[in-house]
């Protein structure tokens, strides 16, 4: 027979479940305390996050390895990571629909990896405070004085001048990971207080748009000429033909050739090199880059997929 739980029993069961399944350590940060920390207020205004409560921002700055007796950003940063990679992937999938999936994934990684996010944290003026709890105690500081700094335990500790001890394990982390983690947590706090639509705007304004990545640099082609001819066959175009457009000093030590690759009357790409073969290959790479980095004006473009050779 199924036992029906009363409200009190249900609540007690719920709370024991929560205790067993959440790893929340430390006490919550009070809004009245967090609001009075000047660093947090300044961060709020610098990032135009005035509507995000100060306690949420203060929590985002406390890493899982922190020795402060406050709740940390472990859960927030894990959720923020998912939000970030989802919106970055969506952004580039719509912008460059012809990019192969592994290149797209790699591109998203350039924007959402920990070192990349740590750069953002630095730009936002987030500063670390990695003193131990003993160090803070000796300088007569309380836990509230650590709010507003990025709080974490560094894995590199200076034992004596000139000698560093590198620790491992889950109790310590690197500065880059802690900085990146707090950016993820801030994204999650923006989601929690503004909702899905506005977090997308925040991610695009503060994470994606400021970064400039040269997209022609992220792809390498192993057999460009062959790939181009397969591509032309697939798209129902005439087979590509390389033609010499200009040359200089063929029999000298510094010869220059300019080759173009044509499909019928259409010029697909152009490249220059010190040998005929190099110029031809560069022209094919140029044409393939033009194909893969196509960006449509309408957003509902569906691509035929990767070229298989």
């Amino acid at each position: 027979m199924r036992r029906v739980l009363g409200p009190w029993q249900f609540l007690r069961k719920q709370s024991s479940y929560l205790e067993a399944h959440t790893r929340v350590r430390g006490r919550p940060i009070q809004l009245s305390i967090a609001e009075k920390v000047p660093r947090i207020r300044a961060l709020q205004h610098r990032l135009q996050l005035n509507d995000i409560p100060a306690d949420a921002l203060a929590r985002s700055l406390i890493d899982g390895t922190s020795t402060l007796d406050y709740v940390n950003n472990t859960g927030l940063s894990r959720f923020g990571r998912t939000l970030l990679s989802f919106y970055a992937l969506r952004h580039f999938m719509i912008k460059y629909p012809r990019l192969p999936s592994h290149v797209l994934k790699h591109l998203v990684h350039q924007y959402t990896s920990m070192p990349a996010l740590a750069e953002h944290a630095k730009l936002w003026g987030i500063q670390p405070d990695n003193r131990s709890s003993l160090g803070r105690y000796l300088s007569g500081e309380e836990d509230t004085d650590g709010l507003g700094f990025l709080s974490y335990s560094d894995k590199i500790q200076e034992v004596e001048p000139g000698i560093q001890k590198i620790q491992s394990g889950s109790a310590v982390t690197s500065l880059t990971d802690a900085m990146g983690g707090c950016v993820r947590a801030i994204v999650a706090s923006v989601y929690a207080h503004r909702g899905l639509e506005l977090v997308e705007q925040f991610v695009s304004q503060y994470i994606i748009e400021p970064r400039q990545v040269d997209l022609t640099q992220i792809m390498a082609f192993s057999k460009p000429t062959r790939e181009l001819s397969v591509l032309c066959a697939r798209e129902g175009m005439e087979p590509p033909v390389s033609r010499l457009l200009a040359e200089s000093g063929r029999f000298s030590s510094q010869a220059v050739f300019v080759a173009g690759v044509f499909s019928g009357d259409m010029k697909l790409g152009e490249g220059q090199g010190t040998s005929l073969n190099e110029a031809r290959t560069r022209a094919a790479v140029n044409a393939l880059q033009g194909w893969y980095l196509f960006s449509p004006k309408v957003s509902n473009y569906v691509d035929a997929g990767e070229v298989v050779i």
Binding site: Q212, V213, A220, I309
Partner: peptide, 12 residues
Amino acid sequence: PVKAIPVVGSVL
């Protein structure tokens, strides 16, 4: 055929 390679200089 297409490989993704690490980007050297990305500017913020």
